[in-house]
């Protein structure tokens, strides 16, 4: 194996953003490296495929786990996603980033599994938010802060369960956008590439998904915040 099995850098945040040109150069180098790996895999080089698996397995698994919340199912989906990549590599023409293609396969497998298991989305919610007008009271973000330290969400069972229940309330499309953003740290453009939709749609879905999450977490927001005051009134 000659290629380095490193994970691609995550989307730059306001706290950790480096120079934009450096990030662009990193992505270009990654894309070039992956194009070479893919070429080797097409010629039957299994070691090259292993490099890709090692590079992306944690992120694919994390994404799948975010969807299905079951470690065994997440592992199966991750394996299936890589198998699909291997079998259908000929259909990947390199017009998009390899990882967005891989994530798309993963997301589709997760959605398929959830639908088969009867854990499908609530289209009613999609319909409802589609008809809400921008600027209406229901379209506002909450300024209420969480009463708990979000960093301790993992150890706060009640909050964790509420977060998962709130995620379950989201449609598949809204959940996909939120997980790709929060777990994978993808940009709007990358999410649009994964989900094959316009960036504006990504922005809108992400906004509505977060707003619903805030509504579902009202009980966990600080008393006295404007949202709480409105609720008690």
């Amino acid at each position: 194996m000659t290629a380095k099995a490193t994970e691609p850098s995550k989307q730059a945040t306001s706290e950790s953003a480096g120079p934009a040109s450096a990030a662009t150069a990193d992505k270009a180098a990654l894309r070039q490296d992956e194009a070479a790996l893919i070429e080797r895999i097409r010629r039957g080089d299994r070691a090259a495929f292993r490099v890709l698996v090692d590079r992306y397995q944690r992120r694919v698994y994390s994404l799948a786990l975010g969807f299905v919340r079951d470690p065994d199912e997440a592992r199966d989906i991750s394996q299936e996603a890589f198998l699909k990549v291997y079998r259908h590599l000929d259909t990947f023409h390199g017009q998009s980033n390899f990882y967005t293609w891989l994530y798309r396969i993963t997301v589709n497998l997760c959605i398929d599994l959830r639908r088969k298991a009867g854990r499908g989305n609530q289209s009613e919610f999609d319909e409802r938010i589609a008809h809400e007008e921008a600027g209406s009271p229901a379209d506002a973000l909450s300024p209420g802060r969480l009463r708990f330290d979000p960093a301790k969400a993992l150890h706060n069972r009640e909050l964790r369960e509420r977060l998962q229940a709130a995620l379950e309330q989201l449609s598949e499309t809204h959940r996909s956008v939120l997980l790709l953003r929060e777990i994978e740290g993808l940009s709007y453009k990358e999410i649009a590439e994964v989900l094959d939709c316009p960036e504006g749609t990504v922005m809108s879905r992400l906004f509505h998904a977060r707003r619903l999450m805030q509504q579902m977490l009202l009980d966990f927001t600080e008393p006295g915040s404007p949202k709480e005051a409105a609720k008690s009134a």
């Binding site: 994390s62 995620l167 777990i183």
Partner: peptide, 23 residues
């Protein structure tokens, strides 16, 4: 209020990351 909304958004994002990302 808008500044507080930004902080509230960060709270939910951080909670999601911490609750969903595997250790």
């Amino acid at each position: 209020e808008e500044q507080q909304k930004l902080v509230a958004l960060s709270d939910v994002d951080a909670a999601l990351k911490n609750a969903l990302l595997p250790t």
